[in-house]
């Protein structure tokens, strides 16, 4: 198992080990401390977080507002962007074909005019498609929408029309010598995963992954949760446990059957021990429950919201 920048643990393989989870737990604690220390400074800062080698890296652009709020943008890699471009290319081809068919009717009146309009339409579509789409859909085209990509100003500011025009006109250089090789290489080596057009226009392309809601019913039962009798401690738990820590506890429950019996006992003991340090529930609430049950109760408090009605 591994963890991404948002703190959501992601699967690395079926043989998750207790050491891996423990290490992640430590990383989660460090992240929480870092977040807290960041909240005390007042400056606008944009930084990049790079992990892994060139092929596997995941870049994050973190923007910190003067109000002390931090929001992270995940930068899209060259492969995803190329796939999105393929969809856009297919869309342009389809639209061109439709226009040609429609203009075939105009050919009855004048073949010359029909041919001229067809040439102009194909040119305007190839140049104007991305410009128009990104302007009207706030940085998205059909391909980008499919892959959840979006063009943004590199400082998180409003995207200007001139930026959209420049980044799209410079495709003629990025696409050299074919299949966006120049743009792809620039994207791969640039600090903010920018192709030449993005560099000139000061834009970035971000990826907003869909974050699925965890399937609570799979891990949590409707059994009585003794911790729920202490709403003030529940509130404290929710406040003090970071999303990363909560995610690790949830993943431990979701993948508990993949662990060896001894590893499972050790893992839940460690996690439960950590949660006990965060919030101490009274003895009558914890008496007679196993470490795994303890983690299950804590996860239930953290993830089951009012909306679930449970």
């Amino acid at each position: 198992m591994n963890a991404d920048e948002r703190g959501r643990p992601v699967c690395r393989g079926p043989s998750a080990s207790i050491r891996g989870l423990s290490l992640l737990f430590q990383t989660g604690l460090q992240d929480r401390d870092r977040l807290r220390s960041q909240a005390t400074t007042k400056s606008v800062r944009i930084r990049n977080v790079k992990r892994g080698d060139l092929m596997n890296r995941t870049n994050t652009l973190t923007i910190r507002t003067p109000e002390g709020i931090v929001f992270s943008l995940r930068l899209a890699g060259p492969v995803t962007r190329f796939l999105a471009w393929l969809i856009d290319f297919a869309s342009i081809m389809a639209l061109t074909l439709i226009i040609r068919i429609l203009l075939g009717l105009l050919g009855v009146i004048s073949q010359d005019v029909a041919s001229a309009v067809s040439i102009l339409a194909a040119f305007l579509l190839s140049v104007g498609y991305s410009i128009l789409m990104e302007w009207c859909w706030r940085g998205q085209t059909i391909g980008k929408r499919v892959f959840r990509l979006r063009v943004m100003d590199a400082r998180g500011l409003r995207l200007k029309f001139s930026q959209i025009v420049i980044r799209n006109l410079l495709r003629s250089v990025d696409s050299l010598p074919g299949f966006y090789m120049v743009g792809g290489l620039a994207c791969l080596f640039s600090q903010q995963a920018q192709r030449l057009g993005d560099l000139a226009a000061n834009t970035i392309v971000i990826w907003t992954p869909r974050i699925p809601e965890p399937d609570m019913d799979q891990v949590l039962t409707d059994k009585y949760n003794s911790f729920r009798d202490y709403p003030h401690l529940n509130a404290r738990l929710r406040q003090r446990v970071s999303p990363h820590e909560a995610g690790i506890a949830l993943q431990a429950l979701l993948r508990r059957d993949e662990l060896d019996p001894q590893a499972r006992v050790d893992l839940f003991r460690e996690i439960a021990s950590h949660f006990r340090k965060i919030v101490a529930f009274p003895q009558e609430a914890t008496d007679g429950i196993s470490d795994e049950r303890y983690v299950r109760n804590v996860t239930d408090i953290l993830f089951r919201t009012r909306a679930s009605g449970k």
């Binding site: 977040l35 909240a39 109000e67 929710r238 953290l302 993830f303 919201t305």
Partner: peptide
Amino acid sequence: SADLAKLMTFSSE
């Protein structure tokens, strides 16, 4: 912004 700062530490939201 202030609300977001308050919610930052809530894992369940």
